[in-house]
Design a protein around this nucleic acid. Sequence first.
DNA 1: CTGAAAGCGCTTACAG
DNA 2: CTGAAAGCGCTTACAG
Lengths: 317, 317
Amino acid sequence: MATIRDIAKQMGLSVSTVSRALNDNQRISARTRKKVKQMAAQLGYQPNYNARNLTNQEANAVGVIFPVNNRVVDNIFYVGLLRGINERLTAKNFVLSVAIGNATEQVLENVKSMINRAQIKRFILLYSHINDPIIELLRKQDVEFVTVGKPAAGQNWPYVDNNNVKAGADATRFLINHYQVSHPVFAESPNGWPYELDCREGYLKEMAQTNRKPVIFAVPDDNDSQLTQLITANPQMDGIVATDDYTGLLIYHRFKALFPDKSIEVIGFNNSLPNELTDQHFHSVDLHPKEMGKAAVDLLFSEEAGKPQRAIVTHTV
Amino acid sequence: MATIRDIAKQMGLSVSTVSRALNDNQRISARTRKKVKQMAAQLGYQPNYNARNLTNQEANAVGVIFPVNNRVVDNIFYVGLLRGINERLTAKNFVLSVAIGNATEQVLENVKSMINRAQIKRFILLYSHINDPIIELLRKQDVEFVTVGKPAAGQNWPYVDNNNVKAGADATRFLINHYQVSHPVFAESPNGWPYELDCREGYLKEMAQTNRKPVIFAVPDDNDSQLTQLITANPQMDGIVATDDYTGLLIYHRFKALFPDKSIEVIGFNNSLPNELTDQHFHSVDLHPKEMGKAAVDLLFSEEAGKPQRAIVTHTV
DNA sequence: CTGAAAGCGCTTACAG
DNA sequence: CTGAAAGCGCTTACAG
């Protein structure tokens, strides 16, 4: 592999000049910069990241942190994010390092190692949990980070997210306008994630505007009889707005099992399930994970004076 | 951050001795090694990876390469693999770097950069395609790599895989023995991936042994009428062995739509779908992606004389 | 506009 | 058993 020293020798220049030329330092004449770059290309020069990182005391890498516990279906979303993130990173000659583990302690060690040993200074968290020890750690360190999903009320850090209030309203309106749904219920997890609160707000707003009585389901992950109760207690329901495709499909199947002859329309978020797994009564709001990944990187590297603290990716129904 | 120089000063030793002690070099007395490590712990010493990598001319990182085109459902499997891979890597103080992109050319550049600039010498490919330019590149370079999935006939490199012949047979027998299925059909993609050929072989073997007539479906990704034809042409079918959960669910839904009253049992591979998305007639062979990830790393770092060229992870029905 | 030199934090061949 | 020194390939303050 050719080094800057090789280029320097070849051209009768010093390594300092070559280094500066390659980094487009204005102190080097435009002519010299150009010639150095040509020679670099000719020799197939590739910068050695380890050397540069050592000198800079900072790695050209972004740490991407996965949540500890997640539902398998969410993995679909994470890989979409990775695609967007890496598209932006390669353009910046940055590298994508991942931290993933089965216990918070493991991931925490992983991240500490990234900071102290690998000298990584920028992170993207693929989640945004409240009281998360990883986030606590990052806030204390001299590093930049961005979460996918906004922080809970009272907390504040840079994030990328969708406009979930609007998405909730849009989804509700979609069922009402395009599928003649009269009594859509809103289904959320018992966890009350921040984005769910927003979706619900949008749903409530839309229901109020159209003079409908809202119904909220808190759908347990593993309590089928409770779900059955919720459904049978609401015989009028003919639509479901679910905070994610998974929850939506869960209720949909349960409903169909209970009332094979009743028809119902469902809309979820994420667009995380391939169409073939669902059917014509199942719809989805596309949250564009890849775009969110790109936006996360842009935010992370933003250098503006009034540094933006968030980026909102537009969803499509 | 404390460096080995700090430890050396503190103890009145040379940096050489400290470096050797930390690396457990036998030339340093056991006593000194112990004391150096104690001091390192006390000072909160953390090795600087960039410095070490520069000296070693090799990064402590493994490049994990995603396939360019994949079905979204496969993402579930990839994240499982990542979990296993990273579990092993952190134990080795290695870092996980990912290469992912939308076009072969992009990923190729990404990988080249990993080799030449980041000095990464080990790779895991999350797929095993025939005539893949990335694999071609890796073979030419002085690097180690392992694929998830075995190479096509005629090609040869280290890989991790399941015993797919056995899995195909086990799945077929499972339907026959536990669900009284009489006429299971075998469903595969039109691509003829190597693992599908093996599954099919297992299916055929089991069918022959039980004196049944085998039926093979090549299920098109997006040709519903062709699938309908296949199903209606085989009215006797009462079971489906599919090369993956996705294909299985596809046929299952189609079948149910055509014959709501007929019952059918399905078994797929990967266990990639959460149970709630399916139902009691849908079964799955668990391929243990996390274990496969671990096995891939073990293989990649194996130093044995008769270096193993593959690792087989046991599936469970 | 360009260069000589120091330094980033390690490892290891050479010397004792 | 331990140390002094060179070197990995960069960047940049200092000097001219």
